[in-house]
C-alpha cells in the first residue's frame, strides 16, 4: 500500500478538533475521575503483582541453566507461550460470561497474559546470569534451591524490578483499553465521555493518565535506585 500524497493534508482537522472541542478542560467530575484513576491503578498493580509472584518461581523451571529436567523446561516454556499468545482483550471477553462486567475479567486477563510475559523475561534473565556465584554455592554443598536463592536471585533482582515497572506501565494502558469492555476505571470513563462528545472531560482524563504513567516511571526509577 503506497502512502498517498496528502495523507497528512488533513492533519489540521485533528488540530482544529482538539483546539475547538477539548478546551477549556472540564473539571466538574474530578473526584470521580480521580477515583477511576485509582481503580485503574489498583487493577494494574494487583494483576501485575499477582502475575509476578506466580511467574517468578515458575521461571526457574523455564531456565535451561537451572531446571533439572528437559521435559519440565519444555512444558513450562510452552505454558508461558500459551499464556502470552492470547491478547488481554480476548481473555477479558472470555471471562465476562463467568465473572460478569467489572474489573474481575480485566484482572484475570492481565494476570494470565503477564504470567506469560514475566515467565519469558525472567527465565531469560536467569539464563543470562553469571555462572560464577552459582558455581560457588554448588562448591560449598548448596542445593539447587540455594543456588537459585544465593547465586541467581541477587544478580537478577534489579532487572526483574525494571521489568516489573515496565509491565506495570503497559498494564495501566491495557486497563484503559479494557475499560471499553466494561472493566471500569478511567478507561471506561474516558470511553463513555468520548462517546457522549464530552471532550472537555476527556482532556482532564487524558492528563490524569499521563500523570499516572509518569508517576509510575518515577516511582520505578526511585525503587530501582534504592535496590541497586
Amino acid at each position: 500500500m503506497s502512502l498517498k500524497e496528502g495523507s497528512f493534508g488533513d492533519l489540521g482537522n485533528t488540530f482544529r478538533f482538539i483546539a475547538e472541542h477539548w478546551f477549556p478542560m472540564d473539571l466538574t467530575d474530578w473526584r470521580a475521575a480521580l477515583k477511576a484513576m485509582i481503580d485503574t491503578l489498583e487493577i494494574a498493580v494487583f494483576s501485575t503483582l499477582a502475575a509476578l509472584l506466580i511467574a517468578f518461581p515458575l521461571s526457574f523451571l523455564a531456565a535451561r541453566n537451572w531446571v533439572p529436567y528437559r521435559w519440565l523446561y519444555d512444558f513450562t516454556r510452552f505454558l508461558f507461550n500459551l499464556f502470552r499468545s492470547v491478547p488481554e482483550l480476548v481473555l477479558a471477553l472470555v471471562f465476562i460470561p463467568t465473572l460478569g462486567l467489572g474489573p474481575m475479567p480485566a484482572v484475570m486477563a492481565l494476570i494470565i497474559h503477564n504470567i506469560g510475559v514475566f515467565g519469558k523475561l525472567i527465565s531469560e534473565t536467569i539464563e543470562a546470569t553469571d555462572d560464577g556465584p552459582q558455581e560457588a554455592v554448588k562448591a560449598v554443598g548448596g542445593t539447587r534451591l540455594l543456588v537459585a536463592l544465593y547465586g541467581i536471585i541477587p544478580q537478577m533482582l534489579p532487572l526483574v524490578l525494571s521489568q516489573y515497572f515496565y509491565r506495570l506501565e503497559v498494564a495501566i494502558r491495557t486497563t484503559l483499553i479494557l475499560g471499553i469492555v466494561g472493566a471500569g476505571g478511567i478507561g471506561q470513563m474516558l470511553y463513555n465521555d468520548f462517546k457522549q462528545f464530552m471532550y472537555q472531560k476527556v482532556t482532564f482524563e487524558v492528563l490524569l493518565i499521563m500523570a499516572l504513567i509518569t508517576a509510575v516511571d518515577y516511582l520505578g526509577a526511585l525503587i530501582r535506585k534504592r535496590v541497586m
Binding site: G132, E135, A136, V140, G141, P154, Q155
Partner: peptide, 16 residues
C-alpha cells in the same frame, strides 16, 4: 563438597 574448599580466579562471591 562441604568438606572441600574452593577458591576461584574471579572470586565467585555472591553478588549484592
Amino acid at each position: 563438597r562441604g568438606e572441600i574448599g574452593m577458591v576461584f580466579q574471579h572470586f565467585n562471591l555472591l553478588p549484592r
